[in-house]
Amino acid sequence: MNSPWTNIRVIAKRELAGYFAAPVAYVFIVIFLLLSGFFTFMVSGFFDRGEATLTAFFVWHPWLYLFLVPAVGMRLWSEERRLGTMEFLLTLPITTWQAIVGKFLASWIFLGVALVLTFPLMLTVNHLGNPDNGVIFGAYIGSFLMAGSYLAVSCFTSAITRNQVVSFILSVVICLFLILAGWPPVTNFLAGISPNSTWLVDLVTSFSVMTHFEGFQRGVLDTRDLLFFLSLIGFSLFATAVVVRGIRE
């Protein structure tokens, strides 16, 4: 028998191979790169800003991931349920947790690969000026953690249903809430409701990925932000385990 870590690795390896065996992976990566290029250069006007930063790039990530990450995560469990392979997978000598973590890690690694492939931007900004590469590195870490959080949410929604479209939509809606809770138009509105105290705004924004991604974008590695993303991932995967357990009841 394998050690738990070997089990997770074998599951993740199979899942990753599945991505790259199908055109899905390449389509995703190309679309991700095209869209992030489009927003960075055309919408944010990267060259006109006259700054040696990648703010114009990272600021779009919460929105880009909103659609792209659920597209990656939607099949994680719903496909297993539809094909009936879930029965095969869960009768293997592994625990449910190992299956969940293995599948999650595979897709997270995949998202990481897509993110790493944006490196020409980093080369560009280094060629044109003298950016603070520590800040850029921090933003990459934050972006990767945010992608992982969205993905864990998608993992949960894909366990709920055998229909990938339903899984996708549910996941987008939940992730949208995570964004909107810290989106200025919403926070301004909330501040208007209780002009004398900030507790409402503080409470709502503390649940938003925007708030916690901001620190990373400024190059500040705050443990609270780190903890936020990690606990969002942990909680969503736990919820996935509860759902999977429910299916087997």
């Binding site: 199979r14 191979a17 599945g18 065996a21 094909l83 009936g84 392979t85 095969f88 009768t91």
Partner: peptide, 13 residues
């Protein structure tokens, strides 16, 4: 060793 009903398998492999 288990062969589930309808013999499920990962179709893309």
């Amino acid at each position: 060793g288990y062969l589930p009903e309808n013999a499920p398998a990962y179709l893309d492999m």
